[in-house]
């Protein structure tokens, strides 16, 4: 680990719930490399998820948007990205009830929260999680 990495204790719990991330690490066997692999997958896959959400919203495919936001919520929970997970859950619920109120704005907020979480995760000292 290099000194550039962020100490987990300094991370805003609304951004990344370190306890949740630590639980994930514990579940998969405590290997930092395995955790880093999952974090990398999350970082790499997030832009495609956002792109897919925008497309589904444009096509008014609320059923598909519900599944995508559900999937994103699940990944965000794994990573301890609490705010992101909450925003995804809200969109999922609205899709389930019918038509979301402001899907485009909501997806932008999800994107913003997701990018913040990714920034935090990328620099996080996973060894000490």
């Amino acid at each position: 680990m290099t000194s550039d990495l962020i100490d987990p204790d300094l991370i805003d719990p609304d951004l990344i719930d370190i306890a949740a991330l630590a639980k994930l690490k514990d579940m998969i066997g405590g290997d930092t490399k395995d955790l880093a692999e999952l974090v990398d997958d999350f970082v790499a896959g997030f832009p495609q998820q956002i792109e897919l959400m925008h497309k589904q919203a444009t096509d008014q495919e609320w059923g598909s948007l519900r599944i995508t936001s559900h999937s994103s919520k699940s990944n965000a929970r794994d990573m301890g990205a609490a705010s992101l997970s909450a925003l995804c859950a809200e969109l999922e619920l609205q899709c389930k009830s019918g038509t979301p109120v402001e899907p485009t704005r909501q997806i932008f907020e999800i994107e913003k929260a997701g990018l913040a979480a990714i920034d935090a995760l990328k620099d996080l000292d996973l060894e000490n999680v």
């Binding site: 998969i28 066997g29 692999e37 999952l38 997958d41 896959g45 794994d78």
Partner: peptide
């Protein structure tokens, strides 16, 4: 259908 979820579950099951 979620690749990350598959990977998490696989790692846990392999434990």
């Amino acid at each position: 259908d979620n690749a990350i979820n598959r990977k998490v579950a696989l790692k846990i099951l392999r434990r």
